[in-house]
């Protein structure tokens, strides 16, 4: 052990972090002593997990109930061709361990629901949401709010990405301040028609990792009062202001949500709804 409290091998491994004034040996030790939970080992979770592992976050949780499909590999870069058919969390665990044995991995091969989410989330320093549906997003937001854990939430559709951080506590807007309830089913358009460019998910998942590392290190400006919108076609980043919504059902003055609530999974297709549906759909 050196004066930095790091082994010789760790000093070499993390030397490019240690060189940064904002990180240094102390910051690196903080990362090694910190924990992060990634919800969804998919398009966003893949790059996020890879970078958090490489950065030396000491304890990494991965929650995903799915298995690796061939159609995932275009964007879910933590998984490889030989992983098809395997549990996503186990495939991710193998990749993380290969990158950095300093990382202790905890896997949750289950869909997060009201019954299990609190036990899974509790004790993590930060949560990254890269899930693929609104019910999970609302559940993760609410649970992080109740458990007072910072949340980095992101989503991607076609060529567009969105990212925001929710810091629990008065004065900070939550995810429900942005969208209070899941959109009505009729306005959820075709998930088949909505593709996504893999690399765009990579950009946003990597941004999530950066944001999480900043939170763990206590540095920089956190996107707790902004929504970042990335338009890959124009190569444009917009940073739109967010503020607490006094009418928010979770954190507003007249809050109505005081415990975890579960929403149904809904997804309709354009086939029966007509062609030009606006709305909210899938991609990551």
């Amino acid at each position: 052990m050196s004066d930095l409290g790091l082994t010789e091998e760790q000093i070499q491994r993390y030397s490019r972090h240690i060189l940064l004034a904002e990180v240094g040996g102390e910051g690196q030790q903080e990362l090694l002593a910190s924990s992060a939970l990634v919800v969804g080992a998919g398009g966003l979770g893949s790059p996020a997990l890879l970078y958090l592992a490489a950065a030396g976050v000491g304890r990494l949780g991965v929650a995903d109930g799915g298995i690796v499909e061939l159609s995932n590999l275009q964007r879910q870069i933590i998984h490889g061709t030989s992983d098809v058919g395997r549990n996503k969390v186990l495939s991710a665990e193998a990749a993380i361990t290969e990158i950095n044995p300093d990382c202790q991995v905890e896997v949750f091969h289950e869909r997060l629901i009201t019954k299990n989410i609190s036990q899974v989330i509790r004790g993590y320093d930060v949560v990254l949401d890269g899930s693929d549906n609104f019910p999970t997003r609302f559940l993760v937001n609410d649970c992080c709010w109740f458990e007072k854990i910072p949340l980095v939430s992101a989503a991607v559709l076609r060529f567009e990405g969105q990212l925001m951080t929710v810091l629990p506590g008065e004065g900070n807007p939550c995810y429900r301040c942005f969208i209070p309830e899941p959109p009505p089913p009729g306005l959820v358009p075709s998930c088949q028609e909505a593709g996504v460019l893999g690399a765009v998910v990579g950009v946003i998942g990597t941004l999530q990792a950066v944001e999480a590392l900043k939170i763990l290190l206590g540095i920089g400006t956190i996107m707790s009062h902004h929504l970042v919108v990335y338009d890959a076609i124009q190569c444009q980043f917009a940073r739109l202001k967010r503020a607490p919504d006094p009418a928010c059902p979770l954190c507003g003055a007249t809050r109505t949500i005081t415990e975890l609530v579960e929403y149904d999974f809904t997804c309709t297709t354009d086939m029966e709804r007509g062609e030009n549906g606006e709305g909210i759909t899938s991609g990551a």
């Binding site: 969105q162 997804c267 086939m271 909210i280």
Partner: peptide, 16 residues
């Protein structure tokens, strides 16, 4: 003026 809606990700499909 930017008009946005939340997006959720994922690749689930429903077929009738």
């Amino acid at each position: 003026v930017t008009i946005l809606s939340a997006i959720a990700g994922g690749a689930d499909v429903a077929r009738k």
